[in-house]
Design a protein around this nucleic acid. Sequence first.
DNA 1: CCGCGAGCTTCAGGAACCTGTCAGGTTGGT
DNA 2: ACCAACCTGACAGGTTCCTGAAGCTCGCGG
Lengths: 219, 219
Amino acid sequence: MRILLIEDDTVLGTAVRDQIAADGHSVDWVTRLDAAGDAMAVAAYDLLLLDLMLPDGRGIGFLKTIRNRGDVTPVIILTALDQISDRIEGLNAGADDYLVKPFDLSELTARIGSVARRYSGNPNPIITHGALDIDLASRSIHRNGKPVQLTAREWALFDAFLARPGQLLSKTQLEDKLYAHGAEIESNTIEVHVSRLRKKLGADVIQTERGMGYRLGPS
Amino acid sequence: MRILLIEDDTVLGTAVRDQIAADGHSVDWVTRLDAAGDAMAVAAYDLLLLDLMLPDGRGIGFLKTIRNRGDVTPVIILTALDQISDRIEGLNAGADDYLVKPFDLSELTARIGSVARRYSGNPNPIITHGALDIDLASRSIHRNGKPVQLTAREWALFDAFLARPGQLLSKTQLEDKLYAHGAEIESNTIEVHVSRLRKKLGADVIQTERGMGYRLGPS
DNA sequence: CCGCGAGCTTCAGGAACCTGTCAGGTTGGT
DNA sequence: ACCAACCTGACAGGTTCCTGAAGCTCGCGG
């Protein structure tokens, strides 16, 4: 499951991120609402973990904004004990669940599992794409039944395509997804990784749109 | 959601059709593969419910055919319990899900909901213009259900027409849009690109107004 | 502290493709 | 019929992309 964590406290954020990763989900972690918006423009998430107190605005407004534009991604709110009114306002704004800080990490796991079960009937969805069987939870891929090993970067890149099947993704968008920490890249790294993915997964998996970008090919 | 039901059993077909309608979707019901092909040529569907045993052929072949021509419409296969091999073959051929007969109608509703959620996670507005389905967000165009590839320049040009449907656009205006910075053009480039667009999208998509410019034709 | 290996990035040569230009043909208005 | 405007096939130059190989970084074990 792809999860977007929006939390500015680095201690809590690190702990939550590690716990989610340990549960077998993939996490993107941002500390600001505008970064969250950018991330959601690039990738589709299965769940948002949303802190309500952030440096560039209140999370409630953000939640209302994405609900207003029709986004139905499940949202779990992270809130401090004394912000009861925020909690209620959050649920009214379209949140699915909430966690009161400080919370136990096992409680986090349980809430995530609950949302996951509620929103995806089958607990361990395997995506079939052409000759590929992709298990997002265990991060494993089989091609014609044979296991394929992807490196971290390769997986991050392929994940970006899986999140938006068929959609055109520019190299800039892909770079933003792979190199979140402002560290800019000035070479054809994306091209090289696309090349490696094609070698491992099949030449037709990723299509080139000259001058525009790449997209996941049809099954 | 527009759903095409392909099922020759009248009892089951009636029940499924009524259930889908009760769920608030619109249904077209055909009992033969050739009728299904005709229906898909006329209307774009969001989901196909495909029985594998039909009077005029096996559904697997039909599924492979539409996938081969690039159609990515979600497909749920309806199959009898003893046709396990068909089920696997169906998934390999590009089906998204399957239902084993006999199935509960509530299960059908759940599967349809699941497919709907998976494919409309990000509601990409799709513009329909005559035989064209245009998805601006993913930058993809389908003509009579078949994908059409546009180059960067062609997109830029077509985009200009889509932004002002029906409005007259002079060549000068189009040049300004395509070649933002001073880089002037001194030939019939626009004419050439219009010609290429017509070849890919259909001759009547762009109309010529002699001596004045071009405009997007009516649907 | 050093060597080693895996993975990542950079580079460079060549291939594939895009696109501006032109020429000859076609269309439409007067 | 004439002329201007437009269409379109062909082509070459330029851009973008692919990919093998080399260089680099980082973590790990010795």
